[in-house]
Write a protein that binds this DNA or RNA. Structure first.
Length: 867
DNA sequence: CTCTCCCGCCACCCG
DNA sequence: CGGGTGGCGGGAGAG
């Protein structure tokens, strides 16, 4: 039967026979985590996706099915990438009703219900018949059922930044039903979300949705805790150990600990809207604790890359129970579960750290880094590296350059242990490197948003602020909200300083108070930032064209660097299983379990707290890893403190050197930043993960970069695409115009903001330039940098086709914090809806009939919002 | 083969 | 005690 169904594709897809499909699939499929859309193939073959799976396994009974053309629809959903799809997604996100419908259609159908599914299949059959197999392929594969995908769907139902006023309740049952999964799965998701305070348990089957408002705060706290725990050291130790394995036995690593105390802090919900009723009870949910710890590892890591084995070891050791390697496997499983959720949140992405021995699965933090609010950090970094530049906003860029130089050139800094070098040498190719990530760097706008948001929050404090904050009716237009990613070219780094970089910023920025930037202080004006945000809002609200310009910050961020990643950790490879024993005995071991949570946490958000960490991190926040102290990395044994760190970084450095440039951000500054809205293309972003290739990175001078911002679900569709062309020397420093489009909102308005008058015509087109970029949903920021404050310029003409409105931002000087930038794939959000694609819903769901609705409704989008 | 991680049994624990 | 939770690990899909 199956066969029958499939045939369509033949008809439809001109392209190739089934084989192709298969191939494609294969290609597409990346790791599981990633989103894969089969859709691409699809255009024609509607079928595939969902129905399939079952089909293969079960038979369809086409007869049964009514015919439902649905498939097509589904397909689309599945494929997020198309502009249309994006819109759809966005819209759906915005409006609950729509969401429901969508879900019902797409999401659910697939799965288990063979019956239903079949229907689809039938249609398919009609179409073509032959390619049954294909269908099978499409069948919900494991990927489709993955927790990551499920999580995306889950997240799609709720606004990232809900109005404070609206409290959204999540009914586990409803969600499970609507998503077509077992409740057990929902627990996994919710637990992780809870660990980040995105949700909190309200009652029995009820969770309250908080959204990301407090995420920065949470991350900040986790970072602090991580520091306290000395996770960095632990990681370093383990990594070192790995390196040295042969050489050294490990010494002791100390960990210090007081674990408990710290841990207790974990999970505190700072602002739980709901009383965290249950919070602590139970065993504490190791998943929650694990999730927090896992996040802490990233936050503390200079490279922002954490290998699973290291994470698992640390967790094992900490757990009070005796660490037994036997648990290693289990821990790793859990880490994958957590990682899938975090990936869906666009906080991390999967990468591989390649080491001599092989590659190790790892994840890279792509979420906000600066939530700490310390601008200082940035400053510090730059200062440390380049004191003189420090002030300059672009200093960061320079830093990159330097680093780059360092890599290429001498790494004196890196004295790194010889052994490390040896290793490196041994593998000329790329000893340690992050494989996947190479694609360009991209920043996540989200981080910026986070920054803003945070600031705002600080001002108003927590939730309250939300209400205050002007939020576009549509749920979430928070400026802050999710942003796309910026991608940067590595290359730029090389030439970082080239004038172009600042170009944009120059003009405009200056106008704004750049100084802040110069100082490196972001804080500068939280208030201002906030105001800025607000200002933005109106536009958003209008439903019309909105202009949101994260600009400065983005640029800044972007500048910041990404490099870090490369280093990767390295480290141990021990095996998964066996590893444990070897592991050190970390003392840490705080009892993880307790999540004491105390709710109250110290939130000091108010104050920037800047100080607290600032120094320590030095490098931390930024990925920059300047090896300050070459220290002996070699000694690994003493991971402990500082020394260790140094060592690690060093490694990184080495690595980086090898790495494709991609990683680095570089400051290429692109003069132009143009933002164009595109619905079409880029948006698709597809999964984040997409392999970025180096291509991007290597871009040529001429490339433009664009930044595309998609609106997360929360936002009604707000997509922005910025393109900056980096022009090499030739191009003037013009800042490109920016366009914003808000598809979600009724019309799609596009805005262009041009910093300076200069606009590149191209810019609009730009996007296409980089394939990758395009692909990414997020925005890519080119090198930008510049101090960037405001990007937007009133003057800038708009040029896009659609109605555009330009808004000038007030100048709010936005502080920019460079560091955070990273590429992210975050597309997840965007995709979500589609993603569903077939989620295959679970097989049997308990009886749930698919009810979808309720949950969504709850979502309420803030007032007007959505729909 | 290894990497991922889905799935769901079944222990907890709360009400 | 029943039901909500969620630890845990077998086992299988994907690569």
């Amino acid at each position: 039967m199956e066969v029958n169904c499939l045939t369509l594709k033949d008809l439809i897809s001109p392209r190739q026979p089934r084989l192709d499909f298969a191939i494609e699939d294969g290609e597409n499929a990346q790791k599981e985590n990633i989103f894969v859309d089969r859709s691409r193939m699809a255009p024609k073959t509607p079928i595939k996706n969902e129905p399939i799976d079952l089909s293969k396994q079960k038979k369809f009974t086409p007869e049964r099915n009514p015919i439902t053309p649905v498939k097509l629809v589904d397909r689309q959903q599945v494929e997020p990438w198309t502009p249309t799809a994006n819109l759809k997604m966005l819209i759906s996100a915005a409006s609950p009703d729509i969401r429901d419908r969508e879900k019902k259609k797409g999401l659910f159908r697939p799965i288990e219900n063979k019956d239903d599914a079949f229907t689809d299949s039938l249609q398919l059959d009609v179409v073509g018949d032959s390619a049954v197999d294909e269908f099978e392929k499409q069948r919900p594969s494991r990927k489709q059922k993955s927790l990551g995908l499920l999580c995306q769907k889950f997240l799609a139902r709720y606004p990232s930044y809900p109005l404070s006023t609206e409290k959204t309740t999540i009914s586990l049952d409803e969600v499970a039903v609507s998503l077509g999964v077992e409740r057990r799965r929902i627990y996994d998701i919710v637990n992780v979300l809870e660990s980040l305070h995105l949700v909190s348990r309200v009652a029995k089957n009820q969770y309250g949705w908080h959204g990301r408002h407090s995420l920065p705060k949470t991350l900040r706290n986790l970072q602090r805790l991580g520091e306290e725990q000395k996770y960095e050291e632990q990681m370093a130790y383990l990594q070192q150990k790995e390196l040295d394995l042969m050489d050294y036995k490990f010494g002791e690593r100390r960990k210090d600990g007081d674990p408990d105390s710290q841990e207790q802090q974990l999970l505190d919900f700072s602002e739980p809207d709901y009383p965290s009723s249950s919070a602590n009870s139970r065993k504490d949910k190791s998943l929650r604790i694990m999730s927090q710890k896992f996040v802490m590892l990233f936050l503390v890591s200079k490279t922002k890359i954490v290998t699973l084995d290291v994470a698992a070891k640390i967790l094992i050791e900490e757990s009070q129970d005796a660490p037994d390697h036997s648990k290693f496997k289990t821990k790793v499983r859990r880490l994958y579960d957590i990682a899938n959720v975090l990936t869906s949140l666009a906080l991390i992405k999967k990468v591989h750290v390649t080491e001599e021995r092989g590659r190790k699965p790892a994840f890279k933090w792509i979420g906000p880094v600066d939530f700490s609010s310390n601008d200082e950090e940035l400053v510090d970094v730059s200062a440390s590296v380049l004191p003189e530049l420090k002030r300059e906003t672009y200093g960061q860029i320079q830093v990159c350059a330097k680093q780059k130089l360092a890599r290429h050139g001498s790494f004196n800094t890196v004295q790194a242990s010889e052994r490390i070098q040896r290793k490196v040498n041994s593998e000329p190719s790329s000893p340690y490197r992050e494989e996947q990530g190479s694609g360009g760097y991209s920043l996540e706008i989200g981080s910026l948003a986070a920054v803003y948001r945070q600031k705002i929050e600080d001002n108003s404090q927590g939730k309250a602020f939300a209400s205050k904050r002007v939020v576009p009716p549509s749920s979430g237009l928070d400026p802050v909200a999710p942003f796309p990613v910026l991608s940067v070219d590595p290359e730029y780094c090389v030439n970082p300083l080239a004038h172009p970089v600042f170009s944009v910023a120059q003009t405009d920025l200056q106008a704004f108070s750049v100084q802040n930037g110069l100082n490196g202080q972001v804080d500068v004006s939280l208030a201002s930032a906030a105001s800025a945000v607000e200002s933005l809002k109106p536009a958003l609200l209008a439903g019309q064209p909105l202009v949101y310009v994260p600009s400065a910050s983005l640029f800044m961020l972007y500048g910041s660097l990404q490099e870090g990643p490369a280093s990767g950790s390295v480290s141990e490879r021990d095996d998964r299983n066996s590893a444990a024993p070897a592991t050190v005995e970390l003392s840490s071991a705080p009892s993880a379990q307790k999540r004491l949570s105390e709710e109250r946490n110290p939130q000091e958000e108010d104050e920037p707290a800047t100080k607290r960490q600032s120094r320590e991190y030095e490098d931390g926040p930024l990925s920059l890893v300047m090896p300050k102290k070459p220290s002996d990395s070699t000694d690994l044994a003493s991971p402990k403190t500082m020394g260790n760190r140094a060592s690690i970084p060093l490694k990184d450095i080495h690595v980086n050197g090898h790495l494709p440039a991609a990683e680095e951000i570089s400051g290429k500054a692109t003069a132009n930043c143009s933002v164009s809205s595109e619905w079409g293309n880029p948006s698709r972003n597809t999964d984040a993960e997409k392999p970025s290739k180096e291509n991007e990175s290597t871009k040529e001078p001429s490339l433009l970069q664009y930044l595309c911002v998609q609106s997360p679900t929360g936002l009604n569709g707000f997509n922005v695409l910025l393109s900056g062309s980096h022009t090499p020397p030739t191009v003037g420093p013009s800042s490109g115009p920016v366009n914003f489009s808000l598809p979600g909102l009724g019309s799609i308005a596009q805005l262009l903001v041009g910093p300076t008058a200069v606009v590149n015509p191209k810019s609009s087109t730009l996007p296409s330039a980089d394939p990758q970029l395009q692909g990414q949903p997020s925005l890519n920021l080119s090198p930008v940098m510049s101090r960037s404050h405001s990007v937007v310029q009133p003057e800038s003409p708009v040029y896009m086709g659609h109605p555009v409105s330009v808004v000038k931002l007030h100048q709010s000087p936005v502080p920019v914090t460079p560091k955070s930038i990273e590429r992210t794939h975050r597309e997840t959000f965007f995709k979500t809806p589609g993603s569903l694609g077939d989620p295959v819903l679970k097989r049997r769901e308990r009886n749930q009939s698919r009810n979808t609705s309720s949950a969504q409704r709850r979502l309420e989008i803030p007032s007007g919002g959505a729909d």
